[in-house]
């Protein structure tokens, strides 16, 4: 089952602290959305509102066509995969997964059949009679997922579900999550602070900061055309260069660059490290001095100082192979479309 979610003008206060500020968001049915942001940005609060664990101070939540704002979690077509799994330690895996069906009054035989089916779906075949404490972290995560999916929710909420797993396992689980989401067709709303995880999973990334939505769009869009300086920064390493805009021209330490659609005044120019190259493609920049170069397998991360001493430090990801000697000056260039300008005093 699957349903669309509509969030209208959500505001929430904890005492005098405003955790959610005017959040409006539409999620299509069957969509995989990640809520991405640093800790304290309100993403988990928003998920709690969707799950019914928190009544928002203002605003509405619709799932499908129904207003869910005031319904308790038990009455919502949502289930949650909790960060700490929150499995029932005194029950077998089969009873854990079948718990929601038991609450819905499904008889034992059918319950066990469906629980086994869901355990199989997450790759835990024939383990139904084991207890949660016998499992590894990754396996518990799978049980939590199976348990939440067993009641066939319309919307599945995932609260940093992979946060406790090691990196390699996390990448494997990401791939599996995506497969499971396609199979089930359920709308997934997934909270994370890991931008790589968000990009690996999401149809759409919603970037949050200080209780507000900063940006929303496909991973490619949010990464390459961030709407705000915060998003640009949060989505990965980026070079920030102070710029002075005068009538569509930016004067920076790297030279004069074209700047369209930005008012005159002080601004910040953002360039991803991988957009910088030393092959003379695009706009030429001022020569910069190499201060460090580190081999990362698929690229070489080169740190440079632009212009004279005391200039700006730049980071560039250059193709592996030609590691430039430290102290050399190299001529960097950048494609015009990789330049992103933001007004200085807006984050």
């Amino acid at each position: 089952m699957t349903a669309a979610v509509q969030i209208d003008n959500l505001n929430h206060w904890f005492g005098s602290f405003q955790a959610l500020k005017n959040i409006s968001l539409e999620i299509d049915s069957g969509e995989y959305v990640t809520l991405l942001g640093p800790s304290g940005c309100g993403k988990t609060t928003l998920l709690s509102v969707l799950g019914g664990f928190l009544k928002p101070t203002e605003g509405n939540v619709h799932i499908g066509a129904r207003d869910m704002t005031l319904l308790p979690p038990a009455d919502r077509p949502t289930t949650t995969v909790f960060q700490d799994y929150a499995l029932f330690p005194h029950m077998s895996l089969r009873d854990n997964v079948g718990f929601g069906l038991r609450m819905a009054g499904v008889d034992k035989l059918e319950r066990h059949r469906r629980a086994d089916e869901k355990l199989k779906m997450v790759g835990l075949v024939g383990d139904g009679s084991r207890r949660p404490h016998e499992l590894s972290g990754g396996q518990r995560q799978r049980v939590a997922l199976a348990r939440a999916l067993a009641v066939e929710p319309e919307v599945l909420l995932l609260d940093e579900p992979l946060g406790a797993l090691d990196l390699k396992l996390r990448r494997t689980m990401q791939d599996e999550l995506k497969v499971i989401q396609r199979q089930a067709g359920t709308t997934f709303v997934h909270v994370t602070h890991d931008q790589e995880e968000a990009m690996a999973l999401a149809d759409r990334i919603v970037v949050m900061n200080a209780g507000q939505i900063e940006d929303a769009g496909s991973p490619r869009q949010v990464y390459n055309q961030p709407a705000t300086l915060f998003t640009a920064n949060f989505m990965g390493e980026i070079n920030q260069i102070p710029a002075q805009i005068t009538n569509g021209q930016a004067s920076t330490e790297l030279g004069q660059l074209p700047a369209t659609g930005i008012p005159n005044g002080e601004a910040i120019l953002c360039i991803r490290p991988e957009a910088l190259c030393d092959e003379g493609k695009g706009l030429d920049l001022m020569p910069a001095k190499v201060t460090d170069a580190t081999f990362f397998g698929t690229y070489v991360r080169v740190l440079l100082i632009s212009g004279d001493a005391g200039g700006l430090t730049l980071s560039a990801h250059l193709p592996p192979g030609d590691i430039p000697p430290i102290g050399d000056f190299i001529q960097l260039s950048v494609p015009t479309k990789a330049l992103r300008f933001f007004p200085k005093y807006r984050t």
Partner: peptide
Amino acid sequence: ENAERAARDLGAT
């Protein structure tokens, strides 16, 4: 407390 929350989420009174 977390397990209780999960149980409520799964429809338990």
